[in-house]
Simulated assay, not measured.
Amino acid sequence: MRVDLFDFDLPPEAIALRPARPRDAARMLHVAGGAPLADLGVRDLPSLLRAGDVLVFNDTRVIPAQLEGQRGEARIGATLHKRIDLRRWQAFVRNGKRLREGDTIAFGAQVTAMAEARHADGSWTLFFPGEEPVEVLLERAGRMPLPPYIAGKRPTDAQDRSDYQTMFADKDGAVAAPTAALHFTPELMAALAQAGIGHETLTLHVGAGTFLPVKADDTLDHQMHAEWGTIDAETAARLNAVRAAGGRIIAVGTTSLRLLESAADESRTINPFTGDTSIFITPGYTFKAIDGLMTNFHLPKSTLFMLVSALMGLETMQGAYAHAIANGYRFYSYGDSSLLLP
């Protein structure tokens, strides 16, 4: 499909620079197949789902994966986006043309990395020598990797260390938050449980590739970056049992959705899964694992706006986004939410 079909005018001021406080005070646009759009709030979620439904959250934890350093006189910026092994990460590098294989980059006084290999897409493999886990080094030298649409408007600060982490964050490895889950609080989870709505978790370590613009003119020519994820056998079995009992599987965030769809087969069975996924969902895709999606508002011509258009229909989502913009909804990572029920 032509990428320009997914373009729309988004005022810069619509991109939220801070989250709602408290988190579950955010607005939520209810988009249901055939029904009028409804302006609601995240706290209305228990009344919009049914007893027996299950929400699926991503329990990845964002690491401080943005580094600023020096290679001689050259300033080098690095955003780690995919773990290769215990001491190696693939990274997008700013000023990477100044690097040669074997160069050492000093990220402050205590953390160094070797530029080990350059990839075809311009990213680099960085090797972090030493005995301490790389995550410990990142806590010492790194910053939270806010999306460029926020970081370009204000500096990252101490508040982002907590703001850009969900209440489910447990397993280190993401360089972008599964932002739909940022809206959840213990109070909201208690209300959902009281309404008979369950929840499960999976892990997808979100990579910085999620922020890359689609530069191709046709979706067929866009290359998705791979991300590592896992769904264990017990979780897969419980989710299949939910659907067999007539409940719905509602993905919280596009990251949960993409991993669930990667794990599902043509019979709509969710299988255990561990490995990389680079699934790219565009209109025409047949969903096998999920019955709905809670997600924030995405940017024009992004792979994520293509995904929600695949779920609900492009015309429906164009109308929903026009409504959201006209009514002052806040977009992107720290923005408001939508509940999409086809």
Rank of each mutant, 00 (worst) to 15 (best):
V3Q: 11
L5K: 10
F6C: 02
F8Y: 15
L10A: 13
I15L: 08
I15F: 09
R18S: 13
P19S: 10
R21I: 06
A26Q: 10
A26Y: 09
M28N: 04
L29E: 12
V31A: 00
V42F: 14
L45G: 10
L45P: 10
L48Q: 15
N58I: 01
D59R: 07
R61N: 01
G69M: 10
G69Y: 10
R75V: 13
R88A: 06
V93C: 09
R94D: 13
N95C: 05
R100W: 07
E101I: 04
D103A: 12
T104A: 12
I105N: 03
Q110S: 13
A117G: 11
R118S: 05
H119T: 02
W124S: 05
W124Y: 11
E131D: 15
V134T: 04
E135Q: 12
L138D: 09
E139I: 08
M144A: 10
P145T: 09
L146R: 10
Y149E: 13
K153F: 00
K153A: 14
P155Y: 13
T156S: 11
T156Q: 11
T156L: 00
Q159R: 15
Y164K: 08
T166H: 03
A169C: 04
V175Q: 02
A176S: 06
A177D: 05
A180V: 02
L182A: 09
L182F: 09
E187G: 14
A191R: 15
A191Q: 15
A195P: 12
I197S: 06
G198R: 09
T201G: 03
H205L: 00
G207Y: 12
F211V: 03
F211Q: 01
V214Y: 04
D221W: 07
Q223F: 00
T230K: 13
I231D: 02
N240D: 14
R243F: 13
A244R: 14
R248V: 12
R258V: 04
L260E: 00
A263V: 03
A264K: 02
S267K: 14
N271H: 15
F273Q: 03
I279Y: 00
T286F: 03
A289H: 00
I290W: 03
H298C: 02
H298V: 00
T303W: 00
A310R: 01
A310E: 05
L311K: 01
L311S: 00
G313V: 09
L314R: 15
E315C: 06
Q318I: 04
Y321D: 05
A324M: 07
N327I: 11
Y329E: 05
Y329A: 06
R330F: 11
Y332K: 02
S333A: 05
Y334R: 01
S338G: 11
S338K: 06
L340F: 09
L340I: 14
